[in-house]
C-alpha cells in the first residue's frame, strides 16, 4: 500500500479532464492505497454543500479517501458549508503532509 496525495487546484467541472480526478482517487482506493484528496484554489468549488460534484466527493469519502478543502480558498469563494464527508483544512496540513506523510504527490 502506498500513500497518495492528490491536490485538486482546478474546478473539477471547468475542464473535461476534471472528471478523471475522482476516478483516479477511486481507482487508487480500489487498489488498496491510502489516498488524500486536498482541494485548493478553484478546486474547493466542488466541495460546496449541495453541489453535484460534492456528492461525487462524498462518494470518495465513503470509499475511504480523505477529502479536504483548504480554508483560505473556501473563504475567498464564499464556501462556508462543505458537502458531507469533506473537512476543512489548511496549508499547514498540506506542508506537513508533504514533509512527512506521502509517497506520491499528484497536482491537478
Amino acid at each position: 500500500m502506498k500513500r497518495f496525495l492528490v491536490v485538486g487546484s482546478r474546478d473539477l467541472t471547468e475542464y473535461v479532464n476534471g472528471k478523471y480526478v475522482p476516478l483516479v482517487v477511486e481507482e487508487l482506493r480500489a487498489k488498496g492505497h491510502d489516498v488524500t484528496l486536498f482541494l485548493i484554489e478553484n478546486g474547493v468549488i466542488a466541495a460546496r454543500d449541495g453541489s453535484k460534484a460534492g456528492k461525487v466527493l462524498n462518494g470518495l469519502s465513503d470509499k475511504g479517501a480523505r477529502v479536504y478543502a483548504e480554508d483560505v480558498s473556501c473563504r475567498a469563494r464564499g464556501v462556508q458549508t462543505l458537502a458531507s464527508g469533506i473537512s476543512f483544512s489548511n496549508l499547514d496540513f498540506l506542508a506537513d503532509s508533504i514533509a512527512e506523510g506521502f509517497d506520491n504527490i499528484v497536482w491537478y
Binding site: 500513500r3 491510502d34 476543512f88 489548511n90 508533504i98 514533509a99 512527512e100 506523510g101 506521502f102
Partner: peptide, 18 residues
Amino acid sequence: MGKTEPPGSKKKKTQKVA
C-alpha cells in the same frame, strides 16, 4: 474551522522539494 492532522504513519522526513 476544524483543525486536521496529517496522515498518521510517518516516513523519512522530506528534505528537498522541487
